[in-house]
Amino acid sequence: MTHGSTNSQGRQLAALSAPAIVFTVAMIAFPVVYTVWLGFHSFSATGEGSFSGLANYSKLAADGEFWNGLYVTFALYILSMVLQLVAGIYLAMLLFHSKRLSGFLRSLLISPFMMPPVVAGMMWLVILDPSLGAANYILESIGLPPSEWLASPVWVIPTIALIDTWQWAPYVALIVLGGLQSLPPSVYEAAQIDGASSFRIFRRITLPLLLPTIVTAAVLRSVDLLRFFDIIYITTQGGPGNASNTLNIYGFRVGFEFFNIGYSSALMITLSAIVLAAVLVLNRLRNAVAW
């Protein structure tokens, strides 16, 4: 094959694949660029827009709802993340060590994350209804006081974190289980020969070796948790008051209910920047704990 024909084939390949590449890049880039562009515009309640520079971003600093949204987003993120990692690791250990669990039971344990979040939200909304729900009925039947759950400004964040943990801890467990199955058996054999207890093996060997896997799970959950939307929208719509009004819920309502698309876009770009920063930090952490 001559040098000229290789060049010709390369050009043909580039020409043939160019439309697909351009289309893919455009599909990814267009929504982002368009949202950035919208963020530099102000729109009236009837949808008429005009260029406003950084006005939407300077408005953020003075907007109490934005700061409340930021607080709620991070409170929910931290609480849910801790609960999901702890529950996920526990569930993974259970699945890894318990040989007696049937396939059906294993499937059942990891099934919640396969449920659409809207269905999960509706289900928990009914269960946690303070007057008619099963949760308070169970509490009262064992002599405990009822709770207002999602309707309490104090308990709404922990309650949503628990619902999300119920749904996503199995997903974390699956990732951790994969990590557990890839750990070198020789390290465990050496520890057992040295007479290390199970707890010591877990704390000194399993956990450190699993750290890269756990951080990977944390990265994946971070993206979802920081832009938490569906279950909150179904159960509380950001209430009571603004107690569960995350940045994502707030931005959505500003855009689609109040039709302030420019400000909503600025909120979403800010949220995207926060998600990106969190992922970058966690990625650095993952590199630091890699072995």
Partner: peptide, 8 residues
């Protein structure tokens, strides 16, 4: 006098 969780 409202139901528990009236805010929702």
């Amino acid at each position: 006098y409202g139901p528990p969780g009236a805010a929702n």
